[in-house]
């Protein structure tokens, strides 16, 4: 019996080293997160056209057209809604630790938290911003799994102390081959599952400022796990990594684009 137990232990250890599903060490997981962050980080400026479609139970679907501007070197982010006309001019501006929302109908800026639903959709600020997983979370390994045809590593993340994030617990499914995020589940502090997001399409383009390639998801499908029938799809199009104009990331600039 003891021999049998010893055999299974040795076999398990062997499997953990030779199989694709071997457990990742914390150092390896940190490296994977840094890779995910670095591949999406530009180091310069970033502009993308986003279409955001929301589906809610009992309501007609709404499609938003927004432009996302980033100046990664300063951690600045701006989201400006262009369409539909009723939302035109609404915007978000992140400078340092401040996230402000501008509502042109009342002409007022208000501070918002990381939990803010961008434009009332299921998306959050982090969906449009550069990835900061390694800075913000501590990983633990959840095992090797299959996601459709893809072999994935499941990594469970817990927010570091003092870091303000929308969700304190995140589960990530990373493609074992490319390292890209394919699935992401976000949990409240109570352990309740809040959102599930899928990243079925990734692409890249060359960045002169980074002198390397920058990866971005072309599509994010977000499912509200609280209001089960609500979902949001974000399509990221026309990513442009050329330098943006100076003096853009200000409240006044965003106000000047609204009514």
């Amino acid at each position: 019996m003891i021999r049998l137990a010893q055999f299974f232990t040795a076999f398990s250890v062997l499997l953990s080293w030779i199989g694709p599903g071997f457990a990742l060490s914390e150092v390896e997981m940190q490296q994977m997160l840094r890779t995910v962050d670095d591949r999406q980080r530009n180091g310069g400026d970033y502009k993308a056209l986003c279409y955001i479609e929301t589906k809610e139970k009992g309501k007609s679907d709404v499609v938003y057209d927004a432009v996302v501007y980033r100046r990664d070197i300063d951690d600045k982010l701006m989201i400006l809604f262009l369409r539909p006309k009723t939302e035109q001019g609404k915007g978000y501006l992140r400078i340092d630790k401040n996230l402000w929302m501008y509502d042109p109908t009342v002409g007022k800026w208000e501070r918002r938290t990381e939990r803010e639903r961008i434009g009332g959709t299921d998306s959050r600020r982090a969906d449009f911003d550069e990835s900061r997983l390694a800075e913000e979370y501590t990983p633990t390994y959840g095992g090797a799994e299959k996601l459709g045809k893809f072999g994935v590593h499941k990594i469970m993340l817990t927010a570091k102390d003092g870091v303000d994030v929308a969700f304190p617990v995140v589960h990530l499914w990373l493609d074992q081959t490319s390292g890209n995020v394919l699935k992401r589940q976000e949990f409240a502090l109570s352990g309740r599952l809040m959102r599930t997001a899928y990243y079925p399409k990734w692409t890249k383009l060359f960045s002169e400022s980074k002198n390397a390639e920058v990866w971005y998801p072309q599509e994010i499908r977000i499912y509200d796990e609280v209001e089960k029938n609500n979902s949001t799809v974000v399509l990221i199009r026309e990513v442009d990594l050329r330098s943006l104009d100076a003096n853009m990331f200000t409240k006044a600039w965003l106000e000047s684009k609204s009514r």
Binding site: T177, S178, T203, E208, W215, D240
Partner: peptide
């Protein structure tokens, strides 16, 4: 290719490389 495998096989996007 959709999820990034292999990396070199993905078509360039909007911003022009050198």
């Amino acid at each position: 290719q959709d999820v990034g495998v292999p990396p070199d096989a993905v078509a360039p996007a909007v911003a022009a490389p050198p």
